[in-house]
């Protein structure tokens, strides 16, 4: 690995994450959603693997927490799904209700569907990174050590 790749990799990580977030929040208005955002973000992490190897990446990033991130995302989405039931509404009934006014944050509409999408994002991100980590870990065990 050359120094250049490492620098590029390091630089790319925030930018992929920002792209991902953009895709996530823009999803309602345009192509893309939590899922695509998560995969894009996962690519950013994957790049670190390619650049620094599994060990180093594992040290720099909170990989161990990935399953937890994943299941937190699932729990978040589930809460959005079943939360309305507590208020006597149908599951997944989003608030603000259809047709009602929405609070804007700039051009971003604040809406429970967004929280739902965030859950999707966390879960898929956790999955993609977690799966790669597991494969890399297995590789390490298989042949001592080495990048993907």
């Amino acid at each position: 690995m050359t120094v250049l790749t490492r620098v590029i990799a390091r630089l790319l990580l925030p930018s992929t994450l920002i792209t991902a977030i953009a895709v996530l929040v823009k999803g309602y208005g345009d192509v893309g959603d939590g899922f695509s955002a998560a995969v894009i973000a996962a690519f950013g992490v994957l790049l670190q693997y390619v650049a620094f190897g599994h060990r180093a990446a594992a040290r720099a990033l909170p990989l161990r927490a990935m399953p937890a991130v994943s299941f937190a995302g699932l729990l978040l989405a589930l809460l959005v799904t079943f939360g309305p039931v507590l208020r006597g509404q149908a599951p997944l009934a989003h608030s603000p209700a259809p047709g009602a006014d929405v609070i804007y944050l700039g051009t971003l509409e604040l809406h429970t569907a967004l929280v739902f999408d965030l859950g999707v994002f966390l879960l898929v991100f956790g999955f993609a990174v977690g799966a790669i980590d597991l494969i890399a870990g297995a590789t390490d065990r298989e042949r001592g050590q080495g990048p993907l």
């Binding site: 309602y28 959603d33 989003h94 259809p98 047709g99 569907a113 739902f116």
Partner: peptide, 18 residues
Amino acid sequence: AAHAKDVVTAILADFRGL
């Protein structure tokens, strides 16, 4: 009505969120 512009995303996150 679902506060969305992309119909596909609205279906995924809202109409057929389940």
